[in-house]
Design a protein around this nucleic acid. Structure first.
Lengths: 305, 305
DNA sequence: TTGAATCCATCGCAAAAAACGATAGGATGA
DNA sequence: TCATCCTATCGTTTTTTGCGATGGATTCAA
């Protein structure tokens, strides 16, 4: 049985005539007769009773007609589903993101995307950069917002910088250097550094170290905390100073200040990362949304001025 | 697009391999490749991404797979529906019946039939014989329980006697003839006859007349009533006597009696009637039930002894 | 690194299926 | 009775489908 049999049978049943069906289908009448006969033979039951003067459907024919129509509707539905899936209008998009660095702009971005693609299912998974790399290997996410992946893996992925930040220094409000608008990092070589824990963000931690090196020293003591708010609290309690990302300024109270540093750190990018190679339409359309939104994200996340 | 495309695609997607699908389908691998390609061309989207070492479904492919599976299930369902319809297991059976003569056995008969064919939809329509004839012409019923149709229409129908009854006489309990066990109809030639109205059952009415003729007279006065209970009531009120069917004995009170007559009337059959020609399976299976039930119906409806 | 194995795509040809045109048989209606 | 309309059947042509052979690409193992 093929859809052709159903198409012909539906035409015959709808017009109650072989010859009318043949005209509608632009097919010769013997082809219709033959096809209906084949269908009846395969099903093992007469579907049409051929009386003189027109035809009638048997009970089996009526039952089959209803099913056949349903099938044709679904066949059209299948085509439409493919069209829509291939335009990225339907499907599932699994997003990994760094909660601290991407969390602030993710909700608005998703909302924007769903406005245009309301039938896409979005799943958010908060993961650090390391976890995202693994999630890609396991095929668990389609795109990630993370720090750059190790260079040796870069061929497997495409990435695009969403925004960049710098390291700045958090000082207790009463600290001597707090009066300057740009702090010379060398002046802090004797301080205890309070930082976000290494494993949580190796790239960030590494940048802290190398920025100090660039200033000509290695941090004497480093306290690591697993929560950024704990880091700030420690500074405000006078335990030390912290080199951290500018956009954390929102967490500061009156007890601490954020200052630019000299020498400046490298730029610390937050990237959108996805597997190299053929790209699913849901992802492609999401990337379009992301690119359109990027200026807004940059404005929000990068240090003003 | 044909079901073949769906079958092949489902096999490819299920096995995640063209060559494995070709083995399962007992079809050469190039045929699979070509068919999937044709399908993709028609849908205007890649369904399968051919990587080295195995293949992957695209988002469009996944969307299509779900639909395709659904369609194949429904296609099987359509075949099954036809099988069942052609065995009379599903469908709709519209029954016309004489309420007085067929009503008493119809419920049990339907119940019996539905026990074996629970998915048949039964619709009951109470109609007199004349209405049933018209209902057949309009294609409104599939089988009728009625008095025999006029001979000139008999070629269009097949009929089968369900049970037969005789005319008997209903007399007021105090009537002179009520003492006899068999009443000589001649003795009643001067009586008023109270009968079920002619149009309601021409065959029955005609038999009343011809039975009187057989006894050698024409009824002097005939009162017609539209309800059998009114007929009985009239007799019990002393308005006359009534030649009627034996099985109405159930309606009688102490005020009237039912007696056999001499000469006996012709047998009055109640028939199952259906259109000649090809016969729908729902009807065929119902006829089987009817034939199996007929002895019980006869016992119930015909006069004992 | 090389050779064997596996996988999918392509090509030319053969087989099968579908469609066509002609025509026959049956019923209807003027 | 003849003309008309409808469906079934037959033989032929066209289209589709399938097969075998082959090639490029990749993987795995020696």
């Amino acid at each position: 049985m093929e859809l052709r049999h159903l198409r012909y049978f539906i035409a015959v049943a709808s017009n109650m005539s072989f010859s009318e069906a043949s005209r509608r289908l632009h097919v010769a009448q013997p082809a219709i007769s033959q096809t209906i006969k084949d269908l009846e033979d395969e099903l093992g039951a007469k579907l049409v009773s051929r009386n003189s003067r027109g035809i009638e459907l048997t009970a089996a024919g009526n039952a089959f007609l209803a099913e056949a129509r349903e099938i044709m509707v679904r066949a059209d539905g299948a085509k439409i589903a493919v069209q829509r899936a291939s335009k990225g209008e339907i499907g599932c998009l699994r997003i990994g993101f760094l909660p601290c660095a991407a969390g602030p702009f993710i909700p608005a971005l998703i909302k924007l995307h769903l406005k245009e693609f309301p039938n896409v299912e979005v799943r958010l998974h908060d993961m650090n950069t390391e976890q995202q790399l693994k999630a890609f290997e396991d095929g668990k996410i389609d795109i990630g917002f993370a720090r750059p992946f190790p260079k040796e893996r870069s061929k497997e992925f495409v990435s695009e910088i969403v925004y960049e930040d710098h390291l700045e220094i958090v000082l207790p409000a009463r600290h001597a250097s707090a009066k300057k608008s740009v702090v010379d990092l060398k002046d802090l070589s004797g301080e205890t550094f309070v930082e976000y824990y290494r494993r949580g963000s190796p790239a960030l931690f590494g940048e802290v170290i190398s920025t100090c090196r660039k200033a000509g020293f290695s941090p004497k003591t480093i306290l690591e905390f697993g929560e950024m708010s704990s880091v700030i609290l420690a500074v405000e309690s006078g335990l030390g100073v912290s080199l951290t990302l500018g956009f954390f300024r929102g967490l500061l109270s009156r007890e601490s200040v954020l200052r630019q540093i000299k020498p400046a750190s490298s730029k610390i990018p937050l990237c959108a990362i996805w597997p190299a190679g053929p790209q699913e339409p849901v992802l492609a359309s999401f990337l379009q949304t992301l690119r359109a939104r990027k200026p807004t994200i940059k404005r929000k996340m990068e240090r003003p001025g």
